[in-house]
Simulated assay, not measured.
Amino acid sequence: MRSCRTSWSSPLSAAALALPLGLLATGEASAHVKWFCAFDVAGQPRGLEQVLCADFEWLAALSILCLMFGCLAEGTPLGTSLLNALDRVTTRLRTDTELLVRATLGFFFVSLWTLGGIILTPELKTDASWIPWLQLAIAACLIWRRTMPLAGAGIVFLFGFATWQYGAFHLADYPVFLGVAAYLILTGLDRTLYGIRPIDVVRAAAAVTLMWASVEKWAYPDWTAPLLAAKPAMTLGASPELFMKAAGVIEFTLAFALIWTPLVRRTAAIILAAIFVSAVFEFGKVDMIGHSGIIVVLIGIAADDRRVAATRRDVVLAPAYYGAALAGFLALYYVGHSLLFAPLTAAPVI
C-alpha cells in the first residue's frame, strides 16, 4: 500500500499520536467546510491510492480496537454501571426528547426564515421568495403534536427541492434531514416504521450522514486547506494531510458507533454532540444554526435507554461490520461521483 508522507517518523507513531490529536481537534474540523470555504462537488476527488495509505490503515486499526474495547467493556459490571448512570443523568432529557427536538427545529426554521435565501443549509442558496415562508410554516407546525407530520412533510419537500436544484450527490451530505422528517411524522402519528422506533430511524440517518461526511474529508482535504491555513493551531503540530485523515477516521468511527451496541452508541453520541458544540465557539452562529438539528438528535440518542445486552458476538463482528461499512461508503462515494461527473470512459481506481 502506498505510503503517505507526514511529520511523524513512522506510520505506527503517526497513527498513535494522530488519533488522540484528531479527537481533540475534530471539533473545529467538524464545522461543515461547505459553509465556510470554496468547494467543487464535481471536481476530481483524491485518488483512493492516496487515501488508503499506511497512516490510514493504522488509524482505522486503532479505531477498530477502540470499538472492540467499548463492546467488551459493555458486558462487564463496569459497563452496566455506566449505562445505569447514564440512565439516571439523562432521565429528564429522555422524557422531554420530543419537546427538545420540536423546540430546536422551531429555532432552526425560524432562523432560516429570518436569514432568507437558504433552503436547508447555508450553501444551499435560493432566490425563491416563498421558501422562507414555507420554513416559517414548518416552524409553526412544530407547536402542536398533531401538525408534526405536516412539518415532516415540509422538510421532505425542501430536501427534494434542494436535490432538484443542487443534485443528488450534493444532498447526499444531508440524509439526516430525511431522518428528522421521519421522526416528526412517525412521532406525530404515534407509529413506528415497521417496528423501528422514530429515534432509531433518525439515529441511522445521522450515522449515514456523518459517515458520508467522513469520506468527503478524505476525498477533498484541500477544501479545508483555507481553514487550516487561517487556524494552524487546529492541527496541533501534525501535517494537514495527517490531520484530515485522523479527523475523518474519528468521525467515521463515531458515526459507525451510533448503530452499534447501547453503551458504545450513547458514548459516541455524547462525544459527537460535544464536538459539534465546541465548533460553535470557533465558527459562530452560522455553525450553531446549521448543526442545531443534528446536535439535538445526538442528545436524544445519548438519552435513549433502550438496551439489548452486548455479547461477545458484537465484539468479534465489530471489525467485519466496520470494514464493510468503510468499504461500502468509499465505493459508494467514488463510484457515485464517477458515474455522475466523470467521463463515461473513466472509472475510479479501487
Rank of each mutant, 00 (worst) to 15 (best):
L254K: 05
R88Q: 12
A246C: 07
C66W: 09
V101F: 04
G106V: 05
A182I: 01
G167V: 06
S9C: 06
C66Y: 01
G293M: 11
G43N: 06
S10H: 10
E28N: 04
C71A: 15
D190N: 14
L48Y: 02
L298I: 06
A137C: 13
T26N: 13
R2C: 01
A206V: 14
Y321S: 09
G70F: 09
L228V: 08
L242W: 05
W212M: 11
T76P: 09
Y194M: 11
V176I: 13
L228G: 06
A230V: 02
A162Q: 07
E241A: 13
I294E: 08
V51N: 03
E98D: 15
L227N: 08
R88G: 00
V180K: 00
P240A: 06
K125E: 05
I259M: 15
A269P: 14
T126V: 05
V335A: 12
M234C: 01
I196E: 11
W35Y: 12
A103E: 14
L120C: 07
W260T: 15
M244Y: 03
G116Q: 11
F159I: 03
E216D: 07
V335Y: 03
L298E: 11
V176K: 00
A247V: 07
W8Q: 14
I295F: 05
C141R: 01
D190Y: 00
L105F: 13
A18E: 11
A342F: 09
D287G: 00
V156G: 02
R145S: 12
V202S: 05
S338I: 04
R46M: 12
Y194Q: 11
L228D: 09
I270Q: 02
R94T: 00
T97C: 12
R5M: 06
L24H: 02
L134I: 10
T95A: 13
A42W: 01
A25E: 09
R312N: 10
W144F: 14
T26V: 15
L178K: 03
D55S: 15
A18D: 13
D87Y: 04
